[in-house]
Design a binder for these strands. Sequence first.
DNA 1: CAGTGGTCTAGACCACGGT
DNA 2: CCGTGGTCTAGACCACTGA
Lengths: 257, 257
Amino acid sequence: MQKMIKGKLAGSKLAASHTADDRLPRYVQIRDDVVRRIGARSWAPGEPLPSEDKLAAEYSVAVGTMRKVLDALALEGIVERVRGRGTFVSRAFERTSMLRFVRFRGAVEGEVPTATIVSISTTQVLPAHAREKLALEPGDKTLYVHRTRSFDGEIVLVEHIFLPLNRFAKLQRFLKEHSPPLLYPVYESECGVLVSRAVDDLTGQTLSALDCKLFGLPPRSSAIQIERTMYEHSGDPVEWRQSYIPIDRFHYSVEIR
Amino acid sequence: MQKMIKGKLAGSKLAASHTADDRLPRYVQIRDDVVRRIGARSWAPGEPLPSEDKLAAEYSVAVGTMRKVLDALALEGIVERVRGRGTFVSRAFERTSMLRFVRFRGAVEGEVPTATIVSISTTQVLPAHAREKLALEPGDKTLYVHRTRSFDGEIVLVEHIFLPLNRFAKLQRFLKEHSPPLLYPVYESECGVLVSRAVDDLTGQTLSALDCKLFGLPPRSSAIQIERTMYEHSGDPVEWRQSYIPIDRFHYSVEIR
DNA sequence: CAGTGGTCTAGACCACGGT
DNA sequence: CCGTGGTCTAGACCACTGA
């Protein structure tokens, strides 16, 4: 009977999914399918999913199993559950952003620095390291955005952002007319990219001549480099950036569990 | 009936717990009680807990509820579940340690640097900032450990560690005869302290004269400071330390979700 | 083989939100 | 009031471990 139900399911909804392994637990298969449908905008960020009952019926599983799926997604931060109201697709990194762990010494807590674009361009040539992080082939084009972030006109952060052009063509046009402080909401609304995970690598580095000039520092000054790779729910990388903060303004706070 | 069972439970095991709020879900109350018993060494790290069935019977709840408790504890990293074998108390930070996110540029990946103690002392005087982080009253004594960490004789990290003396008196004696590379296993075995959570604050700082000498750097050199506060399962702080890494050796890697 | 945790079912009652 | 998610029960069958 267990087997029969499994077969029935595989033949209906989940068959539509690409490579769902039948040996995996059902709740994992369903989780992956829901993630796929969120990525495909079946339900947009902020919108409610169907109720547990309805989803359970749709996937032909018990409500308890569907709960396990939705609880897992809530834990991953992909959805948010509100008792009495429903289950909603998260607005991803809107709240968390690049600056979640970054603080600026001497600045008001929580204040977001103003963004100014230094230059935008497209390029096929980028360091092997960057190409690897973005899982690009040689010859794939990228969008390069050079920005500064400042408080009261004083630059506290310089960003070099690399994005695969095939996903972010719309962003190029958007940034010609706007300079939003946070890019992630724009990725979402303009390019349909939902960021779910990132890896930060912090090191000390010597600044380029241009960046020294931007900060108003002497040549070859050193700064903290935050190298961040961001991934969507599917696990594919979608952004790679290097950010520089002068040492005397640098503050990074993180919780370890 | 629900109510009756609740009363029965509150009157048996959970009443022993200090301030369990009956309005809280049962699985939360039971979770807290299991955490308390782990803290009280009813089951030592590495040892198995009783099986789901037995614990469920002991707490007079359904197995499903007990599963929810144990799954939550596994998610918090307090226990580890192994199918076919049992549920075991985690060995806490033994694997993760101070250096989980810290890398040293130019060093072999995963290699643990040798520890050398510069000095050990007890003191009542420490910065207000440190006293606050450790939630100590003025006059409470602390144990202060000054260590260096090195690869092949080259110092790559200097640590200033502050511990409440009432919990760590045994450590003082232990460190007179040993210089272990990792302290957390010693906290656990000698002092019964299980670390579950930490907060790292990274900033750029100017090194003290002594630390400059230790690194072999000119006076007033700058370095990355990692200020870490560690907490046990109960949420109480148990350690506060400042670590310094020369900028050219500094590398910190962290995943954000 | 007996015992463990992993998955799944099919219900129940509850607390909460909005109508 | 109804519909939502939150808690809890009492089973079932399975996969894996170790004796």
